[in-house]
């Protein structure tokens, strides 16, 4: 029974990502979309939070990264970039989806 969590808010403006991480369990996945992809930048307080949760898979939506000029070199390690089809696959693979708005 796993959950796909999506986060669409910047972690520098809202507590959404922190709250999501605090409620995610082992085997869950977090997918960053829209302004949520700013949470994928390496070397930030948000990145430290993410790194502390080894058993949660972290994804970010490629088109949203590109729109914001965030190349792979700027991102935390261990993150997987997915396209829109990958988003659908993740939704199918998990039992349910929780959108952290």
């Amino acid at each position: 029974m796993s959950i796909l969590h999506t986060v669409n808010k910047s972690p520098f403006e809202k507590q959404t990502l922190n709250s999501c991480i605090a409620h995610a369990l082992d085997g869950d996945a977090i997918l960053m979309v829209e302004d949520g992809v700013y949470g994928a930048i390496d070397g930030t307080a948000a990145a430290t939070q993410l790194a502390a949760n080894k058993n949660i898979s972290i994804y970010a939506l490629g088109p949203d990264l590109n729109a914001r000029g965030l190349g792979e070199a700027k991102l935390v390690s261990g993150l997987t970039i997915v396209d829109y089809n990958g988003f659908v696959d993740l939704a199918v693979e998990h039992d349910k989806t929780q959108s952290w708005l």
Partner: peptide, 23 residues
């Protein structure tokens, strides 16, 4: 300032999210 600094990040390409790239 704050998240406003993201407006000036280089290499923005919005082609795949269907909005105008005003950067």
């Amino acid at each position: 300032l704050d998240d406003g600094v993201f407006q000036l990040v280089k290499g923005q390409d919005t082609a795949d999210i269907g909005v105008k790239n005003f950067s």
